[in-house]
Design a protein around this nucleic acid. Sequence first.
DNA 1: TTGCAAACAGACCGGTTGGTCTGTTACTGT
DNA 2: ACAGTAACAGACCAACCGGTCTGTTTGCAA
Lengths: 199, 199
Amino acid sequence: MSPPRDPESTRRHLLEVSAEEMRFKGYKAASLADILNKAKVSKGALYHHFANKQELGYAVFDEIFVREFLADWDVPMSNTDPIDAVCQWITEMSEQASKEKLQQGCPVCNIATEMVSLDEGFRDRTQTMFDTLRSRIAVMLSTAKLNGQVKQVVVPESVSPFIVATVQGAMMQGKYGRDLETFKAILRCLADYLTTLKT
Amino acid sequence: MSPPRDPESTRRHLLEVSAEEMRFKGYKAASLADILNKAKVSKGALYHHFANKQELGYAVFDEIFVREFLADWDVPMSNTDPIDAVCQWITEMSEQASKEKLQQGCPVCNIATEMVSLDEGFRDRTQTMFDTLRSRIAVMLSTAKLNGQVKQVVVPESVSPFIVATVQGAMMQGKYGRDLETFKAILRCLADYLTTLKT
DNA sequence: TTGCAAACAGACCGGTTGGTCTGTTACTGT
DNA sequence: ACAGTAACAGACCAACCGGTCTGTTTGCAA
């Protein structure tokens, strides 16, 4: 049991319940009243840990959603063949995908789509996150190019956003159609394309 | 000048103003009060033409957003080479894209992302719209296959959702990063891939 | 010209929203 | 032991939300 007063764990609890709410309803539609009810925490406690709803939203985004997202995208880079590694990662992602997860979609993308044009904070966070991801993949492709594992015509700075966009698009399509097969077909197609980049 | 009382045009006006609001703010955050203010129309008039906000949302989605979307995706099919046609269409889309349009993103996708998991009506509409689009592209690829313009290994039912997902992902990435170049790079990459499908 | 429904106008309403404020309880350093 | 502050608890609030309801104006058919 956690002690009767553990500020760090109540903060964490608040964060997780908020994340759960925002996953399904989005940022704006997630009401503080619902969060408080679900978490069985008083309003005073919430406003002791977070200045306002915006700060709570930022914290959820940074500490839960972005963390999860980048962990999911943590493609093994040290493999003998990076393209194979990405393809294998895609296959694993495809197999792990459940219908429920797919219906929920990618929380980062959901919140980003909702808030990017309305809130600078969310915009900056989204931007830097995707920059990180894209450059990570671009580096991988560049080294593969140097090692002669990838065709010289490949432009890492074009292919990396392409990969990101396609995976994101696949998740969206899967979410809209509630269809696991569509999602898998798109990812398989992406893997096919990537193998054409090999020397 | 329109006559002092023209129910059809006030309905249309209401639809357009609502669309403008929902483009920027999404469905839920678009308030009726703001719409009414902007349209300079009374609440009585709105509720005379629409049963409630949901019906207004559906009408905006059907009569404005889906219409625009399918018009944008109206790729010329009768060309000599369908793959070339798609590539040319992609290029045109890439050139026409403005920074403002990109920041706003695709209204259909925005609303779909927000509402698909919360509202059956929006879900059904989104689903059938993308089904229409995908099968339209699949048919194009199938006939091209029959004509021997596309490799026999190509599976139209996989490639068509792939194309849709990638373009959608490209728009999202462009929206998030407010960057026209990323958007264009992704589309160019897609065009490259499509040309590899030619015989 | 009159009757009547369609087309609007806008005051009003209950419920919900994020946020504040005052009070109480628990821990911690001295 | 006690003081002081961090950690809560929850009543309260103004603003806003979608929606209703009553009243007025307009056009048109008879």
